[in-house]
Nucleic acid binder design. Sequence first.
DNA 1: TCTGATGATAACATTTACTTAACCTAACTC
DNA 2: GAGTTAGGTTAAGTAAATGTTATCATCAGA
Lengths: 227, 227
Amino acid sequence: MNKKDITILLVDDEPDILEIVGYNLTAEGYNVLTAENGVEAVKIAKKKNPHLIILDVMMPEMDGIEACEQIRKLPDLQNTIITFLTARGEDYSQVAGFDAGADDYITKPIRPKVLVSKVKALLRRLKEEESSDNVVKIGNLVINRDEYKIIKDKKEIVLPRKEFELLSLLASKPGKVFKREDILDKVWGNEVIVGGRTIDVHIRKLREKIGDNSFKTIKGVGYKFVV
Amino acid sequence: MNKKDITILLVDDEPDILEIVGYNLTAEGYNVLTAENGVEAVKIAKKKNPHLIILDVMMPEMDGIEACEQIRKLPDLQNTIITFLTARGEDYSQVAGFDAGADDYITKPIRPKVLVSKVKALLRRLKEEESSDNVVKIGNLVINRDEYKIIKDKKEIVLPRKEFELLSLLASKPGKVFKREDILDKVWGNEVIVGGRTIDVHIRKLREKIGDNSFKTIKGVGYKFVV
DNA sequence: TCTGATGATAACATTTACTTAACCTAACTC
DNA sequence: GAGTTAGGTTAAGTAAATGTTATCATCAGA
């Protein structure tokens, strides 16, 4: 993922902080959103789905801890990284913050350099999590969605996109039969209209590369991947 | 399955990790067992048959990979989900881990929230297998509509689509008599017109494959499936 | 610009499911 | 018990679905 595509939501009631921190993060190439209180923060988080949220603990309207709890409840934001801004020594907030679902905290006064490197570190985690999430193992196959590659019996196999997507779909639920229409929907998208033999040809290529008996045809229905 | 009934075996040589991860998983309601090395892990796994095993790769005595291999050999633990804990960047362990039979890996440093959600995701797989509503059991028959397959006395039987639909219909209400017209409606669709002997022929094939006495003819009415 | 990879397609082959026709059997009616 | 009716059986025919291969347009990268 590119830095440009990373969105950070910055929440503090002091405009000075928003500006200074916002400036530094923008300079690093991140996409920065700001909010001045918890209510606004939750609203923006819901709408924009940021990757990282930096939350001041002490705020009017709704404090950071409550905002954090609210955000954590949203299903789309389960994987968002949340970090608090706390005045040093406010030990309480650290404990309460972790309880509320925070991942880290940054102490005020803020030193921009430190903040930026912390943000980088946090986002690095995000990347890794993504990549580990996108690795699936079925039988002797390892499917790596990030790198668009397959490892079969320790050997790497490179598949073109369509073939990869198709395999990836079928292998996501080994044994389950995917109807032709479902396959078209998910691999080709439901606007595209392709000829009747297109799926077959791709299945054929997969059979060639991955193994003939991994793909079963259910006539009149579709295909399934078996281990 | 209730969370209380789910057992997780956590294996790491660092007590800190055992404590922190153990605490989080226990707080989620899981049943947590711990081991400090591979040997102990295998022993406990054998005895307690946990649903999920979280294995540190680097350990004294027996490392995680070897432990994983040993565990995978045990017949009772074929369906156990195994996930590794690996230090970031230890790319080697990921591949070797998958080879040894692991299903996933989690990178250190551990973010408790992420770990918990990953554990949930892994266990969801387990649940899905158990409670998929597209599987019907009648007597010694298992009808799996997702996979379009029939299991009779632990043996898989492959049926063509019409036969599958027909069996599936009749077996949906064992004992109930389905009128010929109803069968035509549901299996063939009410636009199609087929000859008078078509249903009989399909019933015959089912009798051949599933068993003669499972299908009773009610003359002048239709057919029923009996256990 | 050229090259090779990719993905779609057409045309044909092959396979399989499904249907039908023709004949057979059992049961029921009078 | 002959006639009638509904269903059983079989094999063969047909249509539908899928497999296969070669070919072509497109596009990204050298």
